[in-house]
Write a protein that binds this DNA or RNA. Structure first.
Lengths: 146, 146
DNA sequence: ATGTGTGCAAACCATTTGCACCCCG
DNA sequence: CGGGGTGCAAATGGTTTGCACACAT
C-alpha cells in the first residue's frame, strides 16, 4: 500500500504537483475502499472521520487531478453523482461493472472481456480505441437466489 | 414514422397515459433526430423552433416517462448532461457508442457485439443481464485521417 | 367533478469557482 | 517574497418540484 502511495506521489510530482496531506488522505481513503465506488462526498466524509481537516472543494479538486493523471477513473451510473475508482496497477483498460437493478449493488469484473470486440470495432469503424466503459444492468447473484 | 408514433401511443395508453400534443411533439423531434443524442434542452429548443408552445419541465417529464416505458434510453457520456436516445424498433439491447476524444462526435454501433461476453458474464458471475451500456472512447475515423 | 397534464418559477443538489489566507521554498 | 494549495462561501447549471390553471372524461 505504501508502494502504491509512492507511485502516485511520483506521478504527481512528475506532473508538477505535490502530495499534500489532504491529497494523501484522499488517496488513502480510496486505497482502503477499493471497489466501493465512492462519490466525492463519500470520500470527504471518510477523510473527515479520521479527524483530518479537509474541505469538500479540495476533495473535488484532488479527484479531478487524479482523474487527469489517470490514477482514478470517474464513472457515472446514472444516479446523478460521479464516482471514483482507483485504476488497477498496470491496467490497460477500465474494468467493467455489474449494477444490480434490485439492490443497487455494484460488482466489478477485472478481466478484460472485450479483446475481440475491440478488434472488430477498430477495423470495421476505423476507430482508434483509447478506453472503454462497459456496464451491465440486471439482477445480481444475491438477489437472484432469493 | 406514423407507425412508430402509433406504437408509442399504444405503449403510453397501455400504461395509462395519453399522447398529448406536447408529448407528440417531443417524440417527433426524437424521431427526426435519431442518432443525434439530444439533451433535454436540445429537445426543448427544437420543439420550440417549430413554434410549438412547450415548457422545459414538460420536456423533462416526458423524457422521464418515455424512459420508464423503455421508449427512450437515457445516457450520460460524462459531460454533465443526460442525453436521450430512441430505442430501436425491437432492439433487445441498447446500442453502443463511439465517443471521439478529439472532436466530441458520438457515433453509434447498432450491431450487438456482446453476445459471447454476456454468456460469460451470466454463467461466471451468475448475473442475470437485463441491459448493458458500452461506450468506447478514442479517436474517430474523421480525426484519425487528419 | 375528478384527475391527468402543463407552464412557470422556485427549489434542489452536485459540482465549480472566486478569493483571501497559508505554507513552503 | 512568490506560487501552489486550501477552505469557505457564493455561484453555477442541469434537473426536479410545488402550485395554480387548463382540459378531457
Amino acid at each position: 500500500m505504501e508502494g502504491r502511495i509512492d507511485r502516485i506521489k511520483k506521478q504527481l510530482s512528475g506532473a508538477g504537483y505535490k502530495l499534500t496531506p489532504q491529497r494523501e488522505s484522499t488517496v488513502r481513503v480510496l486505497l482502503e475502499n477499493e471497489e466501493a465506488h465512492l462519490s466525492a462526498e463519500d470520500v470527504f466524509l471518510l477523510v473527515r472521520d479520521k479527524s483530518k481537516d479537509i474541505g469538500l472543494a479540495t476533495v473535488y479538486r484532488t479527484l479531478e487531478l487524479l482523474n487527469e493523471l489517470n490514477v482514478v477513473d470517474k464513472i457515472q451510473f446514472g444516479d446523478g453523482v460521479s464516482r471514483y475508482d482507483l485504476r488497477q496497477e498496470g491496467a490497460a483498460h477500465f474494468h467493467h461493472h455489474l449494477v444490480c437493478m434490485e439492490c443497487g449493488a455494484v460488482d466489478e469484473i477485472q478481466e478484460d472481456l472485450l479483446g475481440d470486440v475491440e478488434q472488430i470495432v477498430e477495423s470495421r469503424f476505423n476507430f482508434q480505441i483509447k478506453d472503454h466503459r462497459l456496464t451491465f444492468h440486471g439482477i445480481c447473484h444475491r438477489c437472484h437466489s432469493k
